[in-house]
């Protein structure tokens, strides 16, 4: 059934292109790679400064 929705199908397969040479999968991977460590540092810093 999912194949009736090309957008969703492409998104789940990771082949959805946001632009030339940038797939949704790549975009999400880079976004997470950049923001995850920053989120952990800021959260830990807040706790450490509170001590």
């Amino acid at each position: 059934m999912i194949h009736r929705f090309p957008f969703l199908d492409a998104m789940l397969q990771g082949s959805l292109q946001l632009s030339d040479g940038l797939s949704l999968r790549h975009f999400v991977a880079v976004l997470c790679a950049l923001s995850l460590p920053v989120a952990v540092i800021l959260s830990a810093d807040r706790k450490l400064r509170r001590h």
Binding site: L36, I41, L48, H51
Partner: peptide
């Protein structure tokens, strides 16, 4: 720069997360 002891959980979380990434 922070007054907490070195091996508190938040301090360790920073080090572990960065090295794991």
């Amino acid at each position: 720069t922070v007054r907490a002891r070195r091996w508190t959980r938040p301090a360790f979380a920073i080090l572990a997360t960065l090295i794991a990434c």
